[in-house]
């Protein structure tokens, strides 16, 4: 099997972006809070990549990113690998099976994942003793809103990244 350079560079860059997103979420965004919330930028990157990247690679990246995120900035629970894998699988399912490689499923799955992520936060907080309503209003909703704000540029950058490398791959196939 012949391995093209673009087939290595693109996933490698995707992995680098994902690690950068984890570091941003752990170290930079805590300083730029919106209504006290930190956006799930890693989740946004995972969902967007899953729409365009190889399925197997996306799943592995989702598990690794989730583990790295919980290790560097987690609160003791290591639920992100499973959560990110399910988000990536949902994104893959929407983009490849339902909407046939269109950009819309990325947005839809991204919003769904962010909403689920916010719900997860509310559930964890309420399990730890916070009133559920208060957890939704004060933590989950700001987190979701901030996630949506961050999702738009992440989606556009991912789209750009995959367009650039896709074009190069096509050029390589020309005789």
């Amino acid at each position: 099997m012949k391995i093209r350079a673009v087939n290595v560079i693109r996933p490698a860059l995707t992995a680098v972006y994902t690690v950068a997103a984890v570091l941003l979420q752990c170290s930079v965004f805590p300083h730029i809070r919106f209504l006290g919330a930190i956006p799930e930028i890693t989740l946004c990157v995972i969902v967007c990549d899953s729409c365009f990247e190889n399925e197997k690679f996306s799943c592995i990246l989702a598990v690794c990113a989730g583990f790295l995120l919980d290790t560097l900035g987690g609160d003791g629970l290591t639920l992100s690998p499973l959560f990110f894998l399910l988000a990536a699988a949902f994104s893959i399912f929407l983009s490849r099976r339902v909407y046939f490689n269109k950009a819309l499923p990325a947005a839809a799955s991204g919003l769904a994942a962010l909403l689920t992520g916010a719900a997860k936060t509310a559930v964890i907080l309420s399990l730890r003793g916070a009133p559920f309503g208060s957890a939704v209003i004060n933590s989950a909703m700001p987190q979701f809103l901030y996630g949506v704000i961050v999702f738009v540029p992440v989606f556009l950058l991912t789209l750009l990244h995959h367009r650039i490398f896709k074009d190069k791959e096509r050029e390589g196939r020309r005789p």
Binding site: C59, G66, T78, L82
Partner: peptide, 13 residues
């Protein structure tokens, strides 16, 4: 992958 993710989540948590 799913089993690994569940295992990782369970073990490390």
């Amino acid at each position: 992958t799913l089993i690994v993710a569940v295992s990782v989540a369970a073990v490390f948590t």
